[in-house]
Structure formats: structure tokens, C-alpha cells
Amino acid sequence: MAMLLELKNVTKIFRYGFFGFSFKAVDNINISLEDKPFIFTLAGESGSGKTTLARIILGVHRPEYGSVLYKGKDIFKLSSSEMKWFKKEVQAVFQDPYAAFNPLRKVYGYLYDTAKNVAGLSRDEIDGYIDEVLRRVGLNLEKVVGKYPHEFSGGELQRVSIARALITKPRLIIADEPVSMLDASLRINIVNLFKELKDDLKISFIYITHDLSTAYYISDWIAIMYRGWVVEQGPVEKVLSEPLHPYTQTLLLSVPIPDIRLRNKWLSAIKLSATIEEKEFIAKGCKYAGRCPHAKDICFKSEPPTIAIGDVIVKCWLYQK
């Protein structure tokens, strides 16, 4: 099958200070999405590089090494007409909808601009089309026209930003923590909306989150990130029910579950680091070795290989035969 998106050996280096303390925020990452409606989750904790990776896919950051291919084209080598096409095809939704809209500007303006400039619609088509798109996300033109961002609740405004992304009829939406700001009872509605958009409009998503429960609920595939690496990826049912990487195992066990029967397991002691951390980004061997309960000598010395076990790919010395 043709590929929608391929990242090959992508590395992004950030430098701090004049004399260049540098580290790899995204370190030699390979992921790919087939060209079919698909929800791909990038999961990880803060500092794992998931947002940096999203920005690379959107073309905001240029990686130092590796390449990003969208429908076979390198997104950093697009001609200006191809760039226009790419911006229509790939859209983004961010965590904080109040930060995505200028508070002094009516939100309709954003929808109008996207319809006119990016989707290239003519003036008399625009309102009807915007109304249609807003109805997709459970709103309508009447509810939106004339309003400023603060007049919407967080859930509504996030729907508006999803509607804005839908205007260009995208093939792929990058959603970076799109529900983290929302309350639980509203969160599930937005997550359900993504599922609907995938089924009805055949849109693929890269869903970036730290929340494994919603990730399990909506996605087909999951990649677990840690300190710039993808440590494990595979079908979500497999990775989250039989995690292979020790980090995925700890992560999964630490998610607080609204089920009181799991309390004792959750309360089984874990140890936090006692001293000022930590040079994990620039560690020599495995970046997780310092915290890993299974760490062996080799883990501190050289980078673990990536090993395929069935359709799961794991980056860990434990699985080296």
C-alpha cells in the first residue's frame, strides 16, 4: 500500500547557550502511516519529544537529519504550489483553543480566512460551506457568527478549531493534546468526534497525548516516546495490553484508573529519583537505563537495537536474542 506519511531517521537537535549544550529532542525516529483512514497516537510524558515531532511533521521545525515524506514528497523540498497543496492536506489542532485564537478577533474571521485563502473558495460559497463544516462538529453558523473566543466554553471553542481545520478538506490532522484542557465529561465528546471524522470523512489523525486511556479508546496504532526515542510501537490493543518495553509497562501501571479494585496494584511502591536529575537526553546507552528495573551492563553502554516482535517494534536490549 502507498504511504501517506513516512519519517525516516528523523533527528532534531536543540542547542542551548552560546557554547552549545545540545541534545536530541527527537532522536532517529522512523514511523509511517499507510494511506487509509487511521488514527496514529504518539504518546509520552513531558519532554519526550512528541510535540517537537508534530512540529516537524507540520514543517515548522526542520530536522537536522532524516526526511519526512508526505505522499512520497519530501515536505522540506516542496515548490510553492506544492506547499499550498500540503497546507490544505495537513491541518493542525492544538491543546489550548484560547491560545489558538486572538482574543480581540471574532472567531468567524479565522474560518473565513481559511476558507478564502487556503481552501480558495469564492465569497458567496463561503458562508454555506462554513455552516456545513460547523454542523459536522455539532455547531452551526448562527452560534458562531459575531462571537469572540471568550464567549465560547473550552469544549465549544475546541470544536471551532476542529471545524477550522476541516475547511480545507484535509487528509491528515495533527492533533496535539487536543483534549487535555477539557473536562472529562466533554473530553469524550471530542474524542468521539475524531472517530466520526475518521469513519465518515476518511481523515487520518496523528493524535498526540499523554493520556493512554483516550489513546486506547480511539487509536489504531500507538508509538510510545521517551526522551526523543520511540521505545515501542505497534497496534494499540497489543502495546497497551501486553507492553514489552519496561517503560511502557511502568507507564501503563501508573495511570490512575477509575476502578477501585485496581487500587492495591497501583499503590505498590515505586521509587522516584532522589537527586537532581538528569542527563538522560545525553546518556550513552539506553536513556531509560537509570530508571529501568531490568537494566543490565550493556544498557548503560550502548544504544539498544530496535527489534520486531510480531507487529510490535521495541527498542530494548531485553529482547535481543
Binding site: A184, S185, L186, R187, I188, N189, V191, N192, L212, S213, T214, Y216, Y217, L240, S241, L252, V255, I257, P258, D259
Partner: peptide
Amino acid sequence: LIDSLPRIGDKTLRTG
């Protein structure tokens, strides 16, 4: 509030 929370291992449709 409790029903709207998805759980790992369960993909049945939930509503908010």
C-alpha cells in the same frame, strides 16, 4: 462523570 472515562482494554462507545 464516571461513565465518560474510557478505560484501557475497553473500546465500547462512551458518551459524555
